[in-house]
Simulated assay, not measured.
Amino acid sequence: MTAPTFTLLDPRPVAANARYTFFLPSPAEIAAVGKGDLVKLTFAYTHETEEWSIERMWVTVEDVGDTDLTGVLANQPFEKTSSLKVGDLIRFQRYCILSIQWARPETAPPPMEYREYWERCLVDECVLDGSEPVEYIYREEPDMQEEGDKFPDSGWRIRGRLSEASDEELDARKPQYVAVGAVLNRDDSWLSLIDAPIGSRFTRDFTTDTYNEEH
């Protein structure tokens, strides 16, 4: 039987496709990683697994080069078929780093500042799957949040392109209650309007790719 194996995934394509919900350390932070720091990497198993084909795990850095680093696995995998165990030697490249826990945070570069978009909104499913662009947005009094929700309802309601859809197609559209950032990942044409007040309504003009306020 061949021993189970893994590869380390490059997170940069994921970050490029999910700019508003998936954030990597800055280039300065990644360049500063050194001996003793903990870094999180994405392990993808190349054998048939029982539950987890991919795991994100911490590695303690032991040796550093310009681009190549060596460390030891700092936590036990959850996947039962994994041959990995705490203390195993892991060789990786800097671009594989998902996040960092500094051994000496007082000397670490300042973290990159960015806005997060985890507030929820209602959006047509066709926007999320990329089959239609955003056309009409409005912001109402938030009323979707339930007790225990981690993130509040933003009040934004987002419709996919309406002009080319029949009444039956519009009625058949399914709404999804998701993070605003998930919508922006698909279509951020309305980003400049994100802080518009409750009661705002905008329709997209596709000829100019601008939004006109509705009164």
Rank of each mutant, 00 (worst) to 15 (best):
Q76W: 05
I97S: 07
D88W: 03
R120Q: 11
W58A: 07
G199N: 08
Y136C: 08
T5D: 09
P133I: 02
L41H: 03
V33F: 05
V72Q: 15
K174G: 04
R173N: 00
Y20L: 07
W102R: 05
G130T: 03
R12H: 13
F23Q: 14
R12P: 04
L84N: 09
T2M: 15
P175W: 00
E147H: 08
A108H: 01
P11C: 11
V127I: 03
G87K: 02
V39M: 13
E62K: 10
W156R: 01
V178W: 01
L8M: 13
R19V: 09
P77E: 03
E51D: 11
A3Y: 10
I198C: 12
I198K: 15
D68H: 09
S53T: 08
L98T: 06
G36K: 14
A28V: 12
P111N: 04
V61E: 00
T107Q: 13
A31E: 08
T60H: 09
V86F: 06
H47A: 12
F23Y: 15
M144G: 10
R94K: 13
N212F: 07
V127E: 00
K80R: 13
E168P: 04
A18H: 14
V61Y: 00
R201S: 15
A16W: 11
C121E: 05
S166A: 12
E141R: 15
P105E: 08
G160I: 00
L9T: 09
P105Y: 04
P77Q: 09
K80Y: 14
F22G: 04
Q145W: 05
P11Y: 07
E141V: 10
E51A: 15
T60P: 05
E214Y: 03
K35M: 12
P109H: 02
E48C: 12
S189R: 06
L193W: 00
L193T: 03
R91W: 09
V134G: 00
G65S: 14
P11Q: 07
R139S: 06
V61N: 01
L41I: 10
E29P: 02
D167G: 08
V86P: 11
A31W: 01
I100L: 12
